[in-house]
């Protein structure tokens, strides 16, 4: 032992928990924080904005246009721009990812509300729901399946995109890729890719499970 490059398993064992910031374990935790925080924030921001766009339809075109422009911006220059404000911190990664998430979730909220059949909405009005109660107990629950499928896209893309943050030293598992670039050596790349993909799969699985639990009435629907 000791002579020649370590094998994949030796490298993992040696780097899993070194107590340093760049141990695999800490990178994984950073990755989780930096990818899931934007998912949560983008959902919190997209709900009121989506509701506003659904309520005042004229807002929707400019809002979705603006969000698409933001979505089209390459992440690297955005990071560079933000460094002057938020520095080399996790926040610099979290902010653009939150906007990317909003670009997907605002249309999802609008489409979800549009998926409420007109006769259902009419019935709710005729039964004597107040507008607020109708929104909370009829329209939003019916919008959940569409919003959740948007959320799945956001979660997976967010987990994948965090890696780019490695270029400013905040990439979670993406740090493993830059390390391999500086010093050609394959185990970190393999570990990085496997963990990012595994994280994405787990996040997606959790959301699919949530969909099953939250919307049994969709599963109950007969195939069209």
């Amino acid at each position: 032992m000791g002579s020649g490059p370590p094998t994949l398993w030796e490298w993992i064992a040696r780097n899993w928990d070194t107590g340093r910031a760049d141990s695999i374990r800490n990178l994984l935790l950073d990755h989780l924080v930096m990818s899931l925080t934007p998912v949560l924030f983008s959902l919190l921001a997209a709900l009121p904005l989506g509701l506003a766009c659904a309520r005042w339809r004229r807002l929707y075109q400019p809002t979705s246009g603006l969000m698409n422009v933001i979505y089209a911006l390459p992440s690297l220059p955005v990071f560079m721009l933000l460094i002057s404000v938020t520095g080399l911190s996790q926040t610099t990664v979290i902010i653009p990812l939150t906007f990317y998430g909003m670009a997907v979730l605002i249309p999802a909220v609008v489409d979800g509300l549009a998926s409420v059949p007109d006769h259902v909405r009419q019935a709710a009005v005729a039964m004597g729901f107040t507008p607020a109660r109708r929104l909370l107990t009829v329209e939003l629950p019916i919008a959940v399946p569409v919003v959740l499928s948007g959320l799945r896209v956001v979660a997976v893309s967010s987990i994948s995109l965090v890696s780019v943050g490695a270029l400013i030293g905040q990439g979670g598992l993406g740090g493993l890729f830059t390390r391999a670039y500086q010093n050609p050596f394959t185990p970190p790349v393999i570990v990085g890719i496997v963990l990012v993909v595994a994280l994405a799969l787990v996040a997606d699985g959790v959301l699919v499970l949530a969909q099953r639990l939250l919307t049994p009435w969709v599963r109950a629907r007969r195939p069209a």
Binding site: P117, H119, A123, A124, V125, A126, G128, P141, I142
Partner: peptide
């Protein structure tokens, strides 16, 4: 409206 029953063509049941 809570004091008036209402039935519409496609039933308008709440799917959820």
């Amino acid at each position: 409206r809570r004091g008036i029953g209402y039935v519409i063509q496609q039933a308008g049941l709440f799917p959820h």
